[in-house]
Amino acid sequence: MSHLMASIKRAAPELDVVMHGEPRATHAEIAACWDPPRGALANMPNLRLIHSIAAGVDNILSDPELPALPLCRVVDPQHARGMSEFVTWGVLHFFRQLDVVMRNQRQAHWFRPAQEHPSQCTVGIMGLGEIGGRVALDLHRLGFAVRGWARQPRALPGVEMFDNAGLHAFLAGTDILVCLLPLTDETRGILCAETFERLPRGAKLIHVGRGEHLVVPDLVDALSSRRMGGAIVDVFPAEPLPSDDPLWHTPNLIVTPHMASVASSDTIGLQVAQNVQRLLNGEPLHNVVDITRGY
């Protein structure tokens, strides 16, 4: 966290920034955090603002003693760009059948996959916030048929939208499923056997949401039985992924070490500092979280 402290100080040298655990931290008015110890925020009597240092806030909201205070998150356009790059790579990996080519290489088997137009491949994106919307539009520009599913669907040019009631229809027409959902009570465990069964046989998964979205044994079963044709998983319920986890050795699965995209320290520091200044000036805060929705 020292790099984050330095970034906040660069953005606002006048602020007094201390680490959690230091005696003065108890008297802080603003907490910048990601996964604070349970009860830690409740033990800060002067607290006026809680600021996540990431786009997600589920680790903060899971604290049963969370004070009833404004909660903000970081929104980094470069984070969305990085995520779009990663997802685009994953979509192309499956669309151009590089997964098949890599398996064939291990067997010294020469096979040239047919090259199809991307409009023949439907990518379904779960979660259409700032990041999901960017991913959807970038894939649409590449020619893929793109559909999106969200609690509150957005109007995005060229993207077919589905709401909660349309989940089954959304899944039934999706060749490559991308999870970019926030973690809420409704989305926890959504990547499960029922979801996989509703996808077309041989569908692929790119999971870059939150680790707790995934029911690991269900994905292992779906890939081992070839009900699903492949998966790329970047986030896990426990990180680092334990060396004995079955995902390491599941067929047709690529494990990546939570690398899809991260917000830069300078962006985090700047957005925290700006919201601190807005708080002190009595101005509306940026990127305030709706506690009832969880994002």
Rank of each mutant, 00 (worst) to 15 (best):
N43I: 00
P257D: 04
G56D: 12
M5K: 14
A273P: 12
M228K: 08
A28I: 08
A80F: 10
N287K: 10
A6K: 04
G127Y: 11
M126Y: 06
S261C: 09
A165H: 02
D175W: 14
G158E: 07
P240L: 13
S265P: 09
H286S: 03
V276S: 02
R81Y: 06
E212Y: 11
V146C: 00
N252G: 05
L171R: 06
G148Y: 09
I254T: 02
I232F: 05
L128K: 04
T195K: 02
L223K: 09
L270T: 13
V87Q: 09
F95H: 10
P284C: 03
V135H: 06
A55W: 09
C33G: 06
M228N: 07
C72A: 07
S62C: 12
E283N: 09
A25F: 13
H286Q: 10
Q78S: 11
L15G: 02
M83Q: 07
E29N: 02
M5N: 06
A25M: 10
L4A: 01
S265C: 07
G202D: 14
G21L: 12
M259G: 01
L171N: 03
E197S: 13
S243H: 15
G133W: 10
R38Q: 12
L61G: 07
A28C: 05
P251H: 08
L167N: 00
E116H: 10
N43W: 02
A54L: 07
I268C: 05
A55I: 07
P242G: 03
S225D: 11
S52Q: 11
V74Q: 12
K9C: 03
Q105E: 10
R112D: 04
Q277K: 06
G211S: 05
H79D: 04
P13Y: 05
V75C: 00
A32N: 03
L191Q: 01
G129Q: 09
